[in-house]
């Protein structure tokens, strides 16, 4: 019972005296994006991605600094600004649960004042691209998660926005739907020259859609550049996969590079970029190689290494061992 009383006292206190603590979710993040660009916005959980998206759309107000989106200050919520943007959140839906998606589209048509003929053309085009067919006339509650996400996209694009903010648009979708949604987003971007900013936990989304990535971690910008460049920076080593015949011991393989995976007749090695040519010719000379591939490290791994490094750096700054951090 002691804990209960403590809880009660604490919650009462919080009623009378609300403690405010300024938590900097995002601090000193500066970037600009050109018209028509597709940018991936990356960072670990709690990095401030959603906070930044919300500031860019005017849902949150920055305490200091300036934001300019398509010539407007988002937080003023001017109609001319809101008419040009859209936000899709994979975790939240705007479709009315008990009515068909088509009825939500109608509502948005009224809100954005889209003329009837342009509305019809847009809806037809979008539903065709997403292969939705008559699904938009079924009540939303009867649709699958993937179908609902596609309809969310249509609902958000009815006014043909020029700036698209997508927060985890493919979360929870099966792989083939993910691919379809991705292709759709790209073709919309190409057709309308729309600017795109995307956050996703699936690196495949980012790799397929975004030539440029911006990485933030604990509210700070840690990288801004092309995806290739990011991979080169974080993990300059390449993955060398060898398939070979015959029984080969680890001692014969380790001179080639660092062994990451080893199984019967196969090995995956990590080799520095500069030693790659030497390692390959040496492997061909010493082993009975059947097949050989060279790849960059998987993006997921690159990201997790980047974030781990960030944590370690912060811990050093604070004068502690990395293990104690967090």
């Amino acid at each position: 019972m002691h804990e209960r009383t403590a809880g009660l006292a604490a919650s009462l206190r919080s009623v009378f005296r609300r403690e405010h603590k300024l938590v900097k979710a995002v601090d000193g993040v500066t970037f600009s994006i050109a018209r028509g660009e597709r940018v991936g916005f990356l960072g670990p959980n709690g990095a401030g991605k959603t906070t930044t998206l919300k500031m860019l759309t005017g849902l949150l107000h920055p305490t200091s600094g300036t934001i300019d989106v398509a010539g407007h200050v988002p937080q003023r919520r001017e109609a001319a600004f809101l008419d040009q943007i859209m936000l899709v959140m994979g975790q939240k839906q705007q479709l009315i649960w008990d009515l068909p998606p088509a009825d939500t589209f109608e509502l948005n048509r009224a809100v954005y004042r889209v003329p009837r003929d342009r509305y019809d053309a847009t809806v037809n085009e979008l539903t065709e691209l997403l292969e939705l067919g008559d699904l938009v006339k079924k009540p939303t509650r009867e649709l699958s998660l993937g179908e609902r996400m596609k309809c969310e996209l249509v609902a958000a694009l009815i006014h043909q926005p020029k700036v698209l903010f997508l927060d985890e648009p493919t979360i929870g979708l099966d792989v083939s739907t993910q691919v379809k949604v991705r292709d759709f987003i790209r073709s919309y971007n190409e057709r309308y020259g729309a600017t795109l900013m995307l956050t996703s936990h699936y690196m495949d989304d980012v790799a397929a859609l975004c030539p440029r990535v911006i990485v933030i971690d604990k509210g700070r910008l840690t990288f801004d550049g092309s995806l290739d460049e990011l991979v080169r920076n974080v993990r300059p080593e390449k993955r060398l996969t060898l398939h070979f015949r015959g029984d080969v011991g680890d001692d014969a393989l380790s001179p080639l590079g660092q062994i990451i995976e080893r199984s019967e007749g196969q090995v995956v090695l990590q080799v520095a970029q500069s030693e790659l040519a030497a390692a390959v010719s040496r492997a061909l000379a010493t082993l009975d190689v059947v097949d050989l591939t060279v790849e960059a490290a998987p993006l997921e791994e690159v990201m997790s290494e980047l974030f781990t490094r960030g944590r370690a750096a912060r811990a050093r700054e604070a004068g502690r061992e990395p293990d104690e951090a967090e």
């Binding site: 759309t57 005017g58 109609a79 600004f81 936000l87 939240k92 809100v111």
Partner: peptide, 11 residues
């Protein structure tokens, strides 16, 4: 949290 959608509408 879906009120965000409402706040993003130009009305």
């Amino acid at each position: 949290g879906t009120l965000d959608f409402v706040l993003l509408k130009p009305a």
